[in-house]
Simulated assay, not measured.
Amino acid sequence: MKTTAVVALALALSVPRVFAAAAVPASVDPALRRALTDAVKTSASFSNRFEAEVWLLDMSTRLSTLVPDVGRRMALLKTVHAEAARAGLDPQVVLALIQVESRFQRFAVSSAGALGLMQVMPFWIDEIGRPDDNLFDMHTNLRYGCTILAYYLDIEHGNLTRALARYNGSLGQYWYPARVETALRTRWYAR
């Protein structure tokens, strides 16, 4: 066995297996495909420096046990905030979803094949014509994941429970949204 194959196998076996963001649908919604295509092209975030410092300090403290490296933690929080703001999402909802999906493991792979922090299904990179996108890249993964969640929140008319179930591919079931909502309530909104 070649050295690279051994390393790849070792990496695959050491990466935590987590929940799938969504199963591959029978047909892809063209509006979601357009939203992802457009999202890959743009970005923006905090209204002022004070707001940024307060939010980043608060969320950094909450995230420190899951992401001990302060540089990685700050980069992650800034990117989560920017991508959530771009998609019109609450960044703390995104943090709760990441906690449930991957426990903040950038190289997480689900049993269904979903990848990265937000556990995005890889068929999307081909579906929107971006085969060189890397779903283990933090920026790319958050751009895709936030766009998908925002789209589902929109088609569910703001119903977060149903949007989360769609995101996970478990519409009609409540175990997944309950996990995200518990993480949101106990870690990201708790005072």
Score class of each variant (00 low, 15 high):
M138Q: 12
R166V: 07
M121D: 09
Q105A: 11
A31L: 10
D58M: 01
V15R: 13
R33G: 13
R49D: 14
I98E: 09
A112H: 02
T79K: 07
G158M: 02
V94L: 03
G129C: 00
E101R: 01
R106W: 12
P131E: 04
L184K: 04
S110L: 02
L135R: 07
A22H: 06
I155A: 15
P122S: 08
V54D: 09
Q119A: 13
E127M: 02
S14R: 03
G169T: 01
G145Q: 10
A114Y: 01
W188D: 08
V100H: 01
A31P: 02
Y151G: 10
A5E: 10
A35H: 10
R33N: 14
T140R: 08
L57H: 14
M74S: 14
A84P: 15
R34E: 10
T161G: 15
G116R: 02
R191G: 15
S27A: 15
S27T: 13
G88M: 05
Y174V: 00
R179I: 00
T4S: 15
A178S: 03
A39E: 08
M118T: 09
R166S: 11
D69F: 12
M74L: 13
L171C: 12
R191L: 13
I128Q: 14
P25R: 13
M59D: 12
R72G: 13
M138G: 12
Q105Y: 05
A163R: 06
M59H: 06
L115G: 10
V94K: 03
V6I: 03
Y151K: 02
V15E: 06
N141P: 13
D58L: 00
L117F: 13
G158Q: 04
A5S: 12
K41M: 07
A23V: 02
V93G: 12
R49H: 05
D126L: 04
